[in-house]
Design a protein around this nucleic acid. Structure first.
Length: 649
DNA sequence: ATAGGCTCTGTTTTT
DNA sequence: CAGAGCCTAT
């Protein structure tokens, strides 16, 4: 139900800085929002404000960093002004691109039912191509390397041949070979009617640039464009935004250059730095009043970021009363660190904190393995915001491959994956079958079904026959009850396959139950398949965590903690080389982004912050490596922190 | 096609 | 040291 109480409502809920931004008149707006200053709140209220002013929600575009963020903001805006917010377009760039391309892909000579290749799919495709082009061999770069090279060039809008030249300077192989792989990769994707993550963005932009009618349509539709986390957009995404907002120029970007942590993925903080120049009539709003953290935590945050080059000057102003200083914990090694953290967790929990009020953050997933074991032993419930994405796990992809071949008869990757599940069928056999079928297979066609049977080795053929009931009946199920297809498949074949193949068979089965549940949230199987590649852990995680609000400790990388907050924050492995990561510094030649990452970690904390600095770790070869405390800790004035030197147990 | 042994490599962040 | 990926023998 709509609440119509005019502006007073907003004035009560917002501070002066926020209110000014929320109620600003039309035109380009730039909200520079430091951590914990109510950035999300401002966006939510802006949406609510617009709707209350009579703007049709369908004419508002809200671009966010995760789909979950969009959903959350939408839900919050709905509480403010009611159902009318429902028609708003919200989500990630990939999500928006997908939505546009589903409609207009034919203009780019793709079918509208194109498949989205996730990271794994892209890798296996490139692997196949390396083999096909006979380029294997141990000095030839791995598919992983090639893909990240390609993606890096694409997202930074660098010429591919130059990027390849540069990369292979130190390699004894011919850069032309890499370019051949890339060329073939593009061809293959087209032939399979497939796009990878980067293609979505690139093709989406191409669609707008080359088809004035389409561009005009969306420019007209989106009277208001709001962009969250603008500091993490890459040049292509920035173009998207500029193009879409060109007509109405009601563009609101929100961000914080201090929190730009995706340069490695092509994000360019210059987008945010130069925004006021690119839009000369921009109104600038600075949010600096922090409601989240204690003054002691903010002091650390302000100090750590102060020396970073090229940034908008801003200082977090505290509103909360003094509490105690963040703790710098010197520990001997990983084991000691785990024991210390667990000791503190238990203490804080006994003092009244819930597990969910606390988080352990780290630079890289493997930094937390040791702690995970100790937490298990201590019977502390925890949830890892995992490195392996839920929908990229082998068993999930196996099952989805069935839906994919039923849905898209040209989906070679899915077909090969599915067939390889059968006994005695490897990727080679699968490829051969696919070729004999002429690169297309329709499950609903009886001839096609027996053609496959004829091409399979004996053992596989027997299993294939047992699967026929699924292929004979899927068509109505696909529309009405796609989960039932998975259930049948499990019963006939896949349960047993799981049991034979994996030792953690039960967990995987539970995952599949979750997949079925998740599917129920989509209007159709098409929608589900068309978007599942874009669903991130966090998207799914948020739902799951919200659903059964079990109380558990969260473990997360700093990257995945972006935008979130906890009462108590532990940061692990603050040692030079680990955090900041030496690899990252080697790649970029500087430590500015790592420092921003540290800043993000620090500013997640509301009440208490523990910075753990181990003195040594097990080295790569089994020996011991001594560590220097992280430069980010050493740079801080000593009186910012309470030093805790624990006994080396 | 697959199992098992051997060698090499080397721990980043993710839409 | 561990895990991945390659090679070889069946």
């Amino acid at each position: 139900m709509a609440v119509s109480s005019g502006l007073t409502n907003f004035a009560q809920a917002l501070n002066a800085e926020q209110l000014a931004a929320v109620t600003a008149p039309d035109g380009p707006l730039f909200v520079l929002a430091a951590a914990g200053t109510g950035k999300t709140r401002t966006l939510v209220y802006r949406v609510a404000y617009l709707v209350q002013q009579g703007v049709d929600a369908r004419r508002i575009l809200l671009l966010t960093f995760t789909n979950r963020a969009a959903r959350e903001m939408l839900a919050r805006a709905q509480i403010l002004v009611g159902e009318q917010v429902g028609g708003l377009w919200g989500g990630t760039f990939h999500h928006l691109a997908n939505r546009m391309l589903r409609r207009y892909a034919p203009l780019l000579n793709f079918g509208a039912d194109f498949t989205i290749l996730d990271h794994d799919d892209s890798i296996s495709l490139i692997k196949d191509l390396i083999t096909e082009l006979k380029l294997g061999g141990k000095q030839f770069p791995k598919a992983e390397v090639l893909l990240s090279l390609l993606s890096g060039a694409v997202n930074r809008r660098q010429a591919l041949d130059a990027a390849v030249q540069r990369y292979f300077e130190k390699h004894p192989i011919d850069p032309e070979d890499a370019l051949r792989v890339f060329a073939r990769y593009q061809q293959k994707k087209r032939a399979q009617n497939a796009m990878d993550f980067d293609d979505l963005i690139i093709n989406g932009l191409q669609l707008l640039k080359e088809h004035p009618g389409v561009l005009a349509h969306y420019q007209e539709q989106f009277r208001y464009v709001l962009v969250d986390e603008y500091q993490d957009t890459n040049p292509i995404q920035a173009d998207w935004v500029d193009l879409l907002a060109q007509r109405h120029r009601n563009l609101l970007v929100v961000g914080d250059d201090f929190q730009s942590i995706y340069a490695w993925r092509g994000a360019d903080y210059r987008n945010i730095m130069t925004f006021p120049q690119r839009y000369a009539d921009t109104r600038i709003f600075k949010l600096e009043t922090n409601y989240r953290s204690t003054p002691e935590i903010l002091a650390v945050a302000n100090r750590c970021i102060a020396g970073n080059p090229h940034q908008f000057q801003k200082v977090l102003r505290a509103t909360r009363p003094a509490h105690h200083k963040p703790v710098l914990v010197s520990v001997a090694d990983g084991a000691h660190q785990a024991r210390y953290v667990i000791g503190q967790l238990v203490y804080l929990r006994n003092a009244g904190r819930a597990w969910r009020d606390m988080v352990v953050l780290y630079r890289a997933h493997y930094h937390a393995l040791e702690l995970q074991m100790e937490l298990t032993r201590a019977r502390i419930p925890f949830t890892v915001v995992s490195g392996v994405r839920f929908f990229e796990q082998a068993h999930v992809k196996d099952v989805l491959s069935l839906l994919r071949i039923l849905h898209n008869p040209g989906d070679e990757l899915a077909f090969a994956r599915f067939l390889s599940l059968l006994p005695g069928v490897s990727s080679r056999t699968a490829a051969k079958v696919w070729r004999s079928l002429g690169g297309r297979w329709t499950a609903g066609n009886a001839k096609a079904r027996s053609a496959v049977a004829g091409l399979l080795p004996k053992a596989a053929r027997a299993v294939w026959q047992t699967l026929l009931p699924i292929f004979e009946t899927y068509e109505s199920l696909l529309r009405k009850e796609p989960a039932e297809i998975i259930a049948q498949f499990s019963k006939i074949f896949y349960d047993e396959y799981l049991l034979d193949t994996f030792d953690d068979y039960e967990r995987r089965q539970e995952d599949l139950a979750e997949v079925m549940e998740f599917m129920a949230g989509f209007a159709s199987t098409d929608d589900f398949l068309n978007e599942v590649a874009l669903v991130t852990n966090l998207d799914a995680e948020g739902d799951r965590l919200a659903g059964n609000a079990q109380d558990s400790l969260r473990l997360s990388t700093v990257h995945q903690a972006k935008g979130l907050e906890w009462n108590v924050v532990f940061v692990l492995w603050l040692a030079d080389g680990l955090f900041p990561s030496s690899r990252a510094m080697l790649e970029s030649g500087e430590d500015a982004e790592e420092r921003r990452l540290f800043y993000v970690a620090v500013t997640r904390a509301k009440d208490e912050l523990f910075l753990c600095a181990p003195a040594m770790r097990r080295a790569l070869n089994g020996g011991i490596q001594f560590l220097e405390p992280s430069r980010f800790v050493k740079e801080l004035p000593p009186d910012c922190l309470r030093q805790e030197k624990t006994d080396f147990l």
